[in-house]
Amino acid sequence: MNTKEEVLAILQDLTGEDLSDKMDENIFANGLMDSMASVQMLLNLQEKFEIDVPVSEFDREEWDTPSKIVAKVESLENE
């Protein structure tokens, strides 16, 4: 699985929905995600990708669509 698929799998686990055709939908605005789900997502991402994302670095606006999350993870992986 590539990064995109892994991220989508984590998101599906949290939201109960397959988001592969909603890559640019705001998942906070439509109620799929909330703060609690973001925390779970951060922990799952840390485990899966061995990246370090402290809560301070979680700015909702930078993480509010599946595409943005994939891009964030990819940039953190390359650090």
Binding site: V39, Q40, L43, V55, S56
Partner: peptide, 22 residues
């Protein structure tokens, strides 16, 4: 309150597995 209390507390509690049920 969301960023500095709620999210930090849930992050910490989940990492330490203090609660079984999210």
């Amino acid at each position: 309150f969301r960023d500095y209390i709620y999210m930090r507390f849930t992050f910490f509690a989940m990492k330490k597995k203090l609660f079984k049920n999210p």
